[in-house]
Design a protein around this nucleic acid. Structure first.
Lengths: 194, 194
DNA sequence: AGTTTACTTGACATAAAGTCAAGTTGATAA
DNA sequence: TTATCAACTTGACTTTATGTCAAGTAAACT
C-alpha cells in the first residue's frame, strides 16, 4: 500500500467527499470517485482496501479539514452545564449538514454490513462523549433532571442529536437548520435541566 | 397475477414475516422466503412484483394480524391530551418491537431505492397522524408548550417515536423495552406539556 | 543498470434481484 | 372425454457494483 500521506490519496479523499456531498451520500460508486480523482479504479483499491475503508477515511479527513475539534472547543470551555449543553448542540448540530453526505453513505452500508455498522458506531462514539460531557456538567451543577440517570440522559440526548433525527426533521419534515438548532436546544433544556 | 387472497400468497407473507423477525430484517433473500413458504422462487414473483412490494405487503399483513387499530383505540378515546399522549406512546412504542424485523428490511431498502423511500415514508405517515392527534389534543386542552407550533411539536414527537430512535436506544444503547416506554413518556411530557 | 514504488489496463469472480420461456398439474367447462 | 386455463415449477439468463488478479508501464531512487 502506498504512503499514508500521498498526493493521490488526498485527491481520492477529496473526490469522495465532493461526490458524496453533492449526491447526498447515494449513488456514488468507486468508479465515479476514481474518475473524479483522475485515477484508475484500481488505484483507489491501492489506497483503500474496501469502500468502507474509504468512507471511514473520508469522515476522518473531513473532521480534520473542517476542524471539528476547534469547533467543539466552546462547548468544552463553557462555564456551566446549561451553557455547555447549548454550545454543544450548536456546534454538533451545525456540523451535521456538512458531513451528511458521507455520513449517509456510511449509514447505508451499516444496514447490510456488520463491519460497517461497527465502524459507524465507533465514529458516533465521539458524539456520545460530547453528550456525556454536557450531561455530566449538568450533573455537577446539580441541574440534571431527576427523571434520568446520567447514562440514560446521555443516551436520550444522543438520540436527539443523531444524524437520523436531523435527517428526519430537515429532509423529511422540511425544517430549516436554524429551527432545528433552536428547538433542539429548547427540547434538551426542557428534558434534562431541572 | 393470482388472486389477492390466495392460500399461497398468505403463506409467502407469513414466511417473510417469520424470517424477517428472526433475522431482525437483514440477510433475508427472496429465495429464503420462497423456500420457507414451500414454493418456488418464481412463485413469489407471481404474487409480488418486487421485493419492495412484498415487504410493504408484509407490513400491511402484520398490521392486520396484530390488530394495530384496536391497540391504538385506547389513545383515541383518552379523556384528555396528557393521557392521550401517554396512551399513544404506550401503544405505538410497544408495537415497534413486533414489527422491527420487517421495518428494518424496509429501512434498508429505503437507503438506496427511491420508491422504497416513498413507501416507507407513506407507512410512517400513519404514525405521524397519531402524533398529530396527541399534540392536537394537548393544544385543545391549552396544555401544549408555547415553545412550538402544533406542526413542530408533531414533528419532534414523531422523531422521538421513530423506529430509528427505538433502534438506537434498545439495540445500540441496550435499553429495556420498559425503560424505553417509561422515559419516552417522561421526556414527551417534559417537552410538550406546559 | 537494476530495482522499487505507484500506477494502469483489462479480465474475471461474486451475489442477489429480477426476467424469460417452456413445461407440469389439477380443476373446470364444452 | 377432451380442451382450456390458472397456478405453479424449472432452469437459464441479465444486470450491477464490489472486489480480485495478473501483467504491464514509467519515473525515481540506489
Amino acid at each position: 500500500m502506498p504512503k499514508i500521506n500521498s498526493e493521490t490519496r488526498n485527491r481520492i479523499l477529496k473526490a469522495a467527499w465532493q461526490l458524496l456531498e453533492s449526491n447526498q451520500g447515494s449513488g456514488v460508486r468507486m468508479s465515479d470517485i476514481a474518475k473524479r480523482a483522475g485515477v484508475s479504479r484500481q488505484a483507489v483499491y491501492l489506497h483503500f482496501e474496501t469502500r468502507l475503508d474509504l468512507l471511514v477515511a473520508t469522515t476522518l479527513y473531513l473532521d480534520e479539514v473542517k476542524g471539528i475539534d476547534e469547533r467543539l472547543a466552546p462547548s468544552r470551555t463553557a462555564p456551566d452545564g446549561r451553557s455547555r449543553l447549548t454550545a454543544f448542540i450548536d456546534a454538533w448540530g451545525n456540523y451535521i449538514p456538512e458531513i451528511y453526505g458521507v455520513a449517509k453513505a456510511l449509514m447505508t452500508l451499516e444496514a447490510t454490513d456488520i463491519v460497517a455498522a461497527e465502524a459507524w458506531k465507533g465514529r458516533m462514539q465521539a458524539v456520545r462523549h460530547g453528550c456525556a460531557a454536557a450531561i455530566h456538567a449538568l450533573e455537577r451543577d446539580g441541574q440534571l433532571s431527576t427523571a434520568y440517570t446520567v447514562e440514560q440522559a446521555t443516551d436520550l440526548l444522543w438520540v436527539l442529536l443523531s444524524v437520523r433525527s436531523w435527517e428526519q426533521l430537515i429532509r423529511d419534515s422540511g425544517w430549516s437548520q436554524a429551527d432545528y438548532i433552536d428547538h433542539m436546544q429548547t427540547l434538551a433544556h426542557a428534558a434534562f435541566v431541572r
